[in-house]
Design a protein around this nucleic acid. Structure first.
Lengths: 197, 197
DNA sequence: GCCATAACGCAAGTGGACTTGCGTTAGAAT
DNA sequence: ATTCTAACGCAAGTCCACTTGCGTTATGGC
């Protein structure tokens, strides 16, 4: 057995502190916005010392990322419109709306700017993994209905669907209108042989 | 005529200062990397006062963005492989490689984090516009060869091609391998009715 | 050449992210 | 119940992005 075996603690005070800080972070985020959020604010509000916050999260960006990812876990709408085309359009529409909002923009910027140490990498990966996983039923239902003709790689499909949305929000900052969404979904659906528009 | 009409100066000292600062920025960027770059470093190296830099560029991020966009203007390879499919694959491959490198990652993060005041918006828009414009010949040649069957919206096509790359580099941080690139280009080409793989 | 002023230099300061060292508290294992 | 120590509290300090006020320089228009 290795000489040093760090036994981390997860319950009790640790958990309370964690929850208090994340709640405070979201509150400050709502009231002041992502650019105005200071770690001192969060510390005051959560009654947890600033030092403790830095020791656990390492940076302001990482803290915001953790809080925003946690908040995301709640509201994860999986559309069910009766057709895969409809589902994809609904999904893209909802995502575009969320990502364009201040909450979404804050999350994206946090994901982009967060460091790439092991903990953060795992956090991001878990989140995306869960995201993709939660959309699996959507494809299963389509297969049951016999809608998808081409062998479909859901992962690639979703990357082709979401990629352009992220591009617009993050890079070109063009607004995403309904016309663009429909064209995009049309093309994506077509390439994966999805019938039943 | 309006009361206040600001006559900006573009030549002489202004231009020299601008060039000196941007060169210094790139130099520091090469030597220290984007995270280690401080405005004080750039000021020392360019022999331009820190205050002047802030007055002109407003923020560290904006400065880096300007420098990196300028550096991009030089090396803009427009592939010509003889087929649109080949061109797109070459293009995606080159972009993926560049974006994954430290230089590219710095540019992306700068674009994401840069403020959205009028000057910056215009800077980004001009850059992207020029980018898309420079790729137009690629489609013209394809049309001449009779390769593209579907009415092709080059803008949408490029967004569908680049979007997933940006997604991987910025969000999921998955490496982009050759297999992914080929699948992606396959799909994009297919949906736009591009023949002649 | 002269003048108005845009752009720069300089000094001084503010605010906030992040660190360090040390003492204290409270889960968890025995 | 006792002990060990991870996690927290606290004070103090560093670093750097960014600002402000004021004097100085050097363009560009006349």
């Amino acid at each position: 057995m290795t000489a040093t075996e760090v036994r981390r603690r997860q319950g009790g005070r640790s958990a309370r502190v964690r929850q208090a800080v994340l709640e405070a972070t979201l509150a400050v985020l709502r009231e002041s916005g992502p650019d105005q959020l200071t770690v001192a604010d969060v510390a005051r509000r959560s009654r947890v010392h600033e030092t403790s916050i830095y020791r656990r999260w390492g940076s302001r960006q990482n803290l915001m990322l953790d809080a925003l990812l946690g908040a995301q876990d709640q509201r994860m709408p999986v559309p069910n419109t009766g057709s895969l085309y409809g589902d994809l359009l609904a999904l893209a529409t909802e995502r575009a709306e969320y990502l364009s909002g201040s909450h979404g923009r804050a999350l994206l910027r946090s994901m982009v700017m967060s460091s790439d140490d092991a903990v953060l990498i795992e956090m991001r990966d878990d989140f995306l993994q869960a995201r993709f996983q939660s959309l699996k039923p959507l494809f299963d239902r389509a297969i049951d209905r016999g809608e998808s003709l081409v062998e479909t790689d859901p992962r690639l499909l979703l990357e082709m669907l979401f990629g352009p949305l992220y591009f617009r929000v993050l890079i070109s900052r063009e607004p995403i209108d309904r016309e663009f969404l429909e064209h995009l979904v049309d093309r994506v659906a077509a390439v994966f042989g999805i019938t039943g528009r």
